[in-house]
C-alpha cells in the first residue's frame, strides 16, 4: 500500500491545491480508522458493513479528488477492486452454505461468546467485514467506472479543449 512520496507531495501539479492536499493527508487516516471501527464494531453499536464500507469508499473517492487518480489507483486499482468485490460476494454466499452443513442455511454455527465482547455473535462480525470490503470495493469501482474510465468524460474534455 506504500505510495511514492512525490505523488503525495504538494508540489505535484496533479489534483487540487496544496491546502486541500495537506488537509486530506491529515483527514485520511481518521476517515479510514472510523470506517473500520464502524465495520468491526457493527454487531455491538449502530452501523455495520454497509455504513462502514460507504465511509471507506468515500475515503478513496476523497483521495482521488484531492491527489488525482494515480494515487488512488496505486492504493486500489480497478482490477483489485473487482477481485475483492467478487471474492467477498462469493464468500458471503459460501459462509451460509457452511452453515447448511450444520443444519440450516444461514445458521449462526460458531460459538456465540459473551454478549458485548468484541469477538462474539458468531458469524455476524465476519459477515460485517465481508460486506464492508465488498461495499468499499464496489462503490469505488462504480465511481471509477462512471468518472475516470467513462469514455464520455474524456470526450467531453476533448470537446472542451477543441472549443478553446
Amino acid at each position: 500500500m506504500a505510495t511514492k512520496p512525490e505523488l503525495i507531495s504538494s508540489e505535484n501539479p496533479k489534483g487540487m491545491t496544496p491546502v486541500v492536499k495537506t488537509v486530506v493527508r491529515f483527514a485520511m487516516g481518521i476517515v479510514f480508522m472510523f470506517g473500520w471501527y464502524i465495520i468491526i464494531y457493527g454487531h455491538l453499536t449502530p452501523g455495520g458493513g454497509f455504513a462502514g464500507g460507504t465511509i471507506l469508499a468515500c475515503g478513496y473517492v476523497l483521495l482521488t479528488l484531492a491527489f488525482g487518480k494515480e494515487v488512488a489507483l496505486a492504493k486500489m486499482s480497478d482490477r483489485a477492486a473487482s477481485i475483492i468485490d467478487n471474492s467477498c460476494a462469493f464468500l458471503f454466499v459460501a459462509v451460509p452454505l457452511v452453515g447448511m452443513a450444520f443444519g440450516y442455511f444461514f445458521l449462526n454455527f460458531p460459538p456465540h461468546g459473551k454478549p458485548f465482547d468484541l469477538v462474539s455473535a458468531g458469524v455476524i462480525p465476519l459477515y460485517n467485514i465481508l460486506i464492508g470490503l465488498k461495499v468499499t470495493s464496489s462503490l469505488f469501482a462504480i465511481f471509477l467506472a462512471l468518472s475516470i474510465f467513462g469514455r464520455f468524460v474524456s470526450k467531453l474534455v476533448e470537446e472542451a479543449e477543441e472549443e478553446e
Partner: peptide
C-alpha cells in the same frame, strides 16, 4: 442498498445514452 444499485445502473445507462 437496492436503490443505490438501481441509481448507479441508471446513471451508467444515461452516460451510454448520451454517448
Amino acid at each position: 442498498v437496492i436503490g443505490l444499485g438501481v441509481l448507479s445502473l441508471m446513471t451508467s445507462i444515461c452516460l451510454r445514452l448520451y454517448e
